[in-house]
Amino acid sequence: MKPAPFDYLRPATVADALAALAAGGDDARLIAGGQSLMPMLNMRLVTPRTLIDLSALPELRRVEVADGWLTVGAAVTQNELLARPTLATEAPLLAAALPWVGHFQTRNRGTVGGSVAHADPSAEIPLCLVALEGEVVLRSARKRRTVPASGFFIGPLTTARAADEIVEAVRFRLRKPGAAYGFREMGMRHGDFAITALAATVEADRIRLSVGGVADRPTARDWPRLEGAALDEALNAFAWDLGGDDDQHATATYRRTLVRRLGRAVIEDAQTELTP
C-alpha cells in the first residue's frame, strides 16, 4: 500500500523542527530513518497531516563520549554506531546487540533515536538502554529534560515523550570497570522481531538481567550474585512477573520458558567473560 497524503517538512535546525512540531500538534509525526514509521505509513496505520524529517539535521548526528556516558545523537544510524571502532570497548553490550537490530539494509537507514522513540517492546536498542541504565534527552521549544530509561518506556509504542518534544539524544552508560555483559535473542530468523531478547550485566556483587519481548516494555531486575537453585528461583519469579502475551509469534508460556533458560545462559555468558 501507499501512504495517505501528508505535507513534508525538512527543517534545517532542531529549533525549526521544534517550532514545526509545536505548530503541527497531534497531526504531525517525526521521521528519522523511518524503518518503523514508513511501514506504518505504507499500511496506513498512521496518517499524519505533516511529516517532519529529522534525518538530515547535523545537530542530531553526533556521537560523544564524556563523563561516563556514550551520547548518541538521535539521527545516528544503527550501522554508523555499529561501525564505530571503539564501540566494543565503550559499550560491549551495544556492540553485541546491534547486529540483531533488523537487517544490514534497514540498519543503514534506521536510527538509534528512532528505535528508542518508537518503543517496540521487543526492540534491542530500548532493551540496551534499560540494561545500561541509560537516559533519553528530550527537547521542546520550551526546555530540555532528561528522562531515565526506566521511566521513559511506558508501554507498547508508548513513551514519556510529550507531543511537542523530540528525542534529541540517547545516553548509554559506558562499560563499567569489572563488569561483563551478555546478549542473547530468540527470533524466527536472525533479523526478525525478537520473541524474547535478554541482556545480562554481571559485576562482582551484582547481576542485572534485562528482558525485551515479554512484558509491555523492556524490563530489568537486579540480584546479588545468585547461583544454582537460587538463580533458577529468581529467574522463575521474574518470568512470572514479566507475564507476556500469546501472539502469532509465540505463546506467553514459551516466552517465560525463554526467560528461564536463556536468562541463565546469558548470565553465564557474562560470568564466563568476567572470570575466564
Partner: peptide
C-alpha cells in the same frame, strides 16, 4: 512495501537501503 523482502534495495549515496521505506523527496 514494508521493508521486509528487500527486492527494492538501492544504494543512496553508496549505502544500501530500502527504496520502499524512503520518500522520493
Amino acid at each position: 512495501e514494508h521493508g521486509v523482502c528487500g527486492a527494492c534495495t538501492v544504494r543512496i549515496d553508496g549505502v544500501a537501503q530500502r527504496a520502499c521505506l524512503t520518500l522520493a523527496v
